[in-house]
């Protein structure tokens, strides 16, 4: 169990950290270029936005795993520790269901009109596909690729909530034992 949680934590942290690093690097280099050489790339705005949305989805799951989300604790503070932990385990199940439903919602959203072009990424996507010869890379320029972030975020949240649930349950059992 511990190793599974640790693996998930690392995976979520990797996704979140990678997106943060890329977003910083693209924006920094692109603005430096604009103010020095006077040129910037056409995908310099759209791509960091989409990367951030993916990053938020990984960060959301990571934060869930580490109990970092902002929650309203005034009522739950009155409960005894053991009752509260059981309540939070139930909350994990609600979060799991929310994650699953969000994944469906995100899937429906992305497949609906996902093959439209992301205007700023269009030429970059075509260029990638042409230079590498891999046709599927044109998907870089399709909004659906990025819109799918919400569906993936829902799935990651469901995974995080499930793992948190089992972690809490085993902690409760350990106390009782």
């Amino acid at each position: 169990m511990k190793t599974v949680n640790e693996f998930a934590r690392r995976l979520f942290a990797l996704g979140a950290g990678l997106s943060m690093a890329l977003v910083f690097a693209i924006i920094f280099v692109n603005s430096l270029r604009r103010y020095t050489v006077g040129q910037s790339v056409s995908w310099g705005e759209e791509l960091p936005i989409y990367l951030t949305i993916y990053g938020v989805m990984f960060g959301l799951a990571l934060a869930y795993l580490q109990d970092r989300h902002i929650r309203f604790t005034v009522l739950t503070d009155f409960l005894s520790v053991s009752v509260r932990e059981k309540l939070f385990a139930a909350v994990d199940l609600v979060s799991f269901a929310t994650g699953v439903a969000l994944a469906f919602s995100g899937h429906a959203f992305a497949v609906r009109r996902g093959n439209l072009d992301a205007s700023g990424l269009k030429s970059a996507g075509n260029w990638l596909a042409e230079t590498t010869g891999i046709d599927s890379l044109v998907w870089v320029a399709k909004v659906g690729t990025w819109q799918y972030a919400i569906a993936i975020g829902g799935a990651l949240l469901a995974v995080a909530a499930a793992l948190k649930f089992f972690e809490r349950i085993s902690a409760i059992k350990a106390v009782q034992a």
Partner: peptide, 20 residues
């Protein structure tokens, strides 16, 4: 605007298009 058609047009006219 970051729209290819406008980029092509300004290029055709001899200017330098900059999408912003």
């Amino acid at each position: 605007q970051p729209i290819p058609l406008y980029v092509e047009m300004v290029k055709g006219l001899g200017g330098e298009p900059t999408p912003i």
